[in-house]
Amino acid sequence: MDFGLKDKVVVVTGGGTGIGFAIAKAFHDEGAVVVINGRDKGRLDAACTRIGPRAHGVVADLMTPEGAVTLADFAEGLGPVAHLVNNIGVFDVNDFFEVSDDRWIEYFQHNLMTAIRITRLLMRKMLDRNEGSVVFISSEAAIRSIGNMVPYSTTKTAMLGLARSLAELTRGTAVRVTSYMPGTTATESVQGYFEGLAKEQGKTVEQALADFYRDVQPGNLVQKLIDPALHGRGVVQLATNAAMNGVTHRADGGTIRSII
């Protein structure tokens, strides 16, 4: 299938590892020019080598307004940005009563403000051109609120509201804003979490995962971690489908028991 991405400029924030890397690779494989960002040039260069020859890495910290400008300027120097994927985010398991104000602010900075800053710069130009799309990578935790990940769940829920509100600004145009909700995925950080949990519990990783799906996510229908490459393909389809605007696409393995 031709998604119309040949030589189109696509920005995937983060994009050096995990789901972001898989998304960047999927766009690149469809012919796009892909721009990712991060704070470590060596890691960015290595990721771009793995993604392919049309991948570009920009040292730019979206925790700052200056970093967002650096990323936007570089990407637009390659051509008009056709698609923006807001992928940057952090998570950890924590005790709500022990999370400090500063840590809460860090969560909002990482999981929301990074997306707000770059979207504010690039979406306005999409509206001026009357073309383009923005995708926010949220999480199934946005709906299946998790008690030992309260800051993460809260900020991912806020991201859904942000995306839908921005979609309202596109009414009558060819610009679209959508959200994507992945479930528990076999990224480096998630695999590292389960490896640590298995060691702590004196189990194999396979046993720890089996217990997780039995006790924590019994409603999950696939009963295994999701391959990040599947999210890459899913986001390409979401970003390029002109019929999808203001919607949230679930890719959670059926964890959330809902018919919509």
Rank of each mutant, 00 (worst) to 15 (best):
16 G>T: 15
20 G>D: 00
38 G>C: 12
38 G>R: 09
41 K>D: 02
43 R>H: 14
45 D>T: 14
46 A>Y: 07
53 P>I: 11
54 R>Q: 14
54 R>K: 15
56 H>G: 09
59 V>G: 04
62 L>D: 03
64 T>P: 08
67 G>V: 06
71 L>C: 09
92 D>A: 06
94 N>G: 12
94 N>L: 04
96 F>K: 02
96 F>R: 04
100 S>A: 09
101 D>G: 03
105 I>Y: 12
107 Y>H: 07
110 H>M: 15
115 A>V: 03
120 R>V: 05
131 E>L: 09
133 S>I: 08
133 S>L: 10
135 V>W: 05
136 F>A: 00
137 I>W: 13
137 I>D: 04
138 S>P: 02
139 S>V: 06
140 E>W: 12
141 A>R: 03
155 T>K: 09
157 T>L: 10
162 L>Q: 06
162 L>V: 14
165 S>D: 13
167 A>C: 10
167 A>V: 03
168 E>D: 14
168 E>F: 14
169 L>I: 08
172 G>K: 11
174 A>W: 08
174 A>Q: 15
180 Y>P: 02
182 P>M: 07
193 Y>A: 06
194 F>S: 04
197 L>P: 00
199 K>T: 12
200 E>A: 15
206 E>D: 15
208 A>I: 10
208 A>P: 02
208 A>R: 10
210 A>V: 08
222 V>Y: 00
229 A>V: 11
230 L>T: 09
240 T>K: 07
241 N>S: 10
245 N>E: 07
247 V>P: 01
248 T>N: 11
